[in-house]
């Protein structure tokens, strides 16, 4: 998508040359690229990503910060569900590795993983939202409603987020499930599993309390890395479900070639991935006593 932003804005409305030059000067586009770059980096580290071309005069940072909580709401809910589903399915399929359940879950989760998320989202929106009418078609909350209780508010948020979260979960739990299952297979061969069984522990206790509790560690580590996949997924879901998060902002900025906004979004998303990794590291210490300090 080439073209400088000023040209696009010059042709978007009918603009005189003077107006075009005014805009170029306003956004500092007349400076040399290096000057623009230095100015940008300098400001970025102060949390200032400049002004949006499209949402002028709002600045990029405020726009992103108001969208970010919605994205995080989707991503975090989806990731928690993914991990829970993967924990149970992975543990169960490894328990009888090579069995029918194992083969079926692997086949299904790989198939869902290989399906393009945006397509799943389109189908979900069309079938579950449009045809069956079970879920709202757009937005993240019912507009103009004053919520009677705090509970109603959360309920409404979840009602609107249900489809996007569902699509994220369905498409992405397979990755965790695979890690969980493969670790679980090796964990089940550990001596302490035999010890637990010898102690007379029930199958459920051996499976979850001993085996899965240990086997989940690599999966938890992967949450940090896979956070960026969830971010990618949220771009599609937010775009298709018209959910006003950072992902939708990115999608719109691509169309408008709103570079400051794009860069800002990317920067903020990278930061949230790094923070997520840090949080996972902290959480990991509580899950694995061997690396406690």
């Amino acid at each position: 998508m080439p073209g400088t932003a000023a040209d696009i804005y010059a042709t978007a409305g009918r603009m005189t040359e003077d107006e075009r030059l005014a805009i170029v000067a306003r956004f500092g586009l007349d400076e040399s690229l290096w000057v623009q770059f230095y100015t940008y980096i300098g400001r970025a580290f102060q949390g200032d990503f400049g002004q949006s071309f499209t949402y002028f005069p709002s600045n990029v940072t405020t726009k992103i910060l108001s969208a970010l909580p919605w994205s995080l709401f989707l991503i975090i809910n989806a990731m928690i569900l993914q991990v829970i589903i993967a924990f149970v399915l992975g543990a169960t399929s490894a328990w009888k590795a090579g069995g029918k359940f194992d083969a079926t879950t692997q086949a299904i989760s790989l198939a869902l993983w290989a399906t393009p998320m945006f397509w799943l989202a389109m189908l979900a929106l069309y079938l579950l939202g449009n045809d069956l009418g079970w879920f709202p078609l757009a937005g993240q909350q019912t507009p103009g409603v004053t919520y009677a209780t705090w509970f109603n508010k959360i309920g409404d948020y979840y009602y609107h987020a249900a489809l996007p979260i569902m699509v994220l979960v369905v498409n992405q739990f397979g990755g965790y499930q695979l890690i969980m299952r493969n670790t679980m297979v090796t964990t089940l061969r550990e001596h302490y599993i035999t010890t637990a069984e010898a102690k007379g522990a029930s199958d459920t206790r051996v499976k979850y309390k001993h085996a899965a509790r240990n086997a989940m560690l690599p999966m938890v580590t992967s949450v940090g890395l896979r956070f960026s996949l969830a971010v990618a997924g949220s771009i599609f879901t937010e775009m298709i479900f018209n959910y006003n998060g950072v992902g939708r902002l990115i999608f719109q900025s691509v169309g408008m070639r709103d570079y400051p906004m794009l860069q800002g979004c990317f920067f903020i998303l990278s930061c949230s991935v790094i923070i997520a990794n840090l949080l996972v590291d902290i959480l990991y210490q509580y899950l694995d006593p061997r690396i406690r300090y």
């Binding site: 035999t194 010890t195 637990a196 509790r213 240990n214 899950l287 694995d288 006593p289």
Partner: peptide, 8 residues
């Protein structure tokens, strides 16, 4: 010594 105790 060979891991008969659960590490967690």
């Amino acid at each position: 010594a060979m891991g008969a105790l659960n590490p967690v």
